[in-house]
Design a protein around this nucleic acid. Structure first.
Lengths: 115, 115
DNA sequence: CCATTAGGCAAGCATTTGCTTGCAAATATA
DNA sequence: TATATTTGCAAGCAAATGCTTGCCTAATGG
């Protein structure tokens, strides 16, 4: 145990991604999160623990409940890694876009009014 | 095997992220990629296979070599999932930014020329 | 044609993951 | 105080992951 524990690993699991999406709306305690999944409370609890260890959520104790607050900023790490790649696919998109516009310019008869 | 095979899973592994980064520069064949890692060729080969199954790279056979071409567009899936979250952390960033500017406006003596 | 080079396939193995069930601790409520 | 609710802890387990080594196939070049 005590294995790799980073944001990429954290969002690799679909259940954990769902939990993060849920928390985008509002903070929730463990049980109310667990109710929304078909797996056991303990399974959800483990996911929460992992998310917390990765600093993706903040656990705040309120009485006997523990509220999970999303820390979206942490996902900026993923966005940061993605950024140099995004330039590539956006470039390609731009190229396709130019080709498309050029084609429409050279084929005004087929281009029609819609796009 | 034959398990979950999606982009999130693919980029969860640090070696695979490195491979993708390498391929951003130029397409490379399997062996030249493998040389740049401390693990065995077969281990790298498996990573390549996974990346290919996830449509993150394109394998083109040239003679006895197999060139790996990056398909960056596929990463747009991750960017897409990230997008609604990014709005959250950017909002917070914008708020901090406004606070910062306001502070500088109200403390022109301490603000200095640098930032 | 034969040696070299690029790569695939498969068995084997230690570790991690994701899940379960059972039980204990702490807080809230009747 | 007795009981219900929220959560944590731990053992156990099947499957997935990441890696290795050994051997096989195919294309290239002398």
């Amino acid at each position: 145990m005590e294995a790799r524990r980073d944001v990429f690993q954290a969002i690799a699991d679909p259940t954990r991604r769902e939990i993060l999406t849920l928390l985008r709306r509002r903070a929730q305690n463990l049980n109310s999160i667990a109710e929304q999944f078909d797996i056991s409370r303990q399974a959800v609890s483990l996911h929460i623990k992992i998310l917390s260890e990765c600093d993706l959520i903040d656990l705040r104790k309120e009485g006997r409940e523990r509220y999970c607050h999303l820390k979206a900023e942490k996902l900026a790490e993923v966005a940061g890694w993605l950024e140099p790649f995004s330039r590539l696919w956006e470039d390609r998109f731009d190229q396709l876009d130019s080709l498309w516009k050029e084609w429409r310019f050279q084929n005004p008869d087929q281009a029609g009014g819609k796009d």
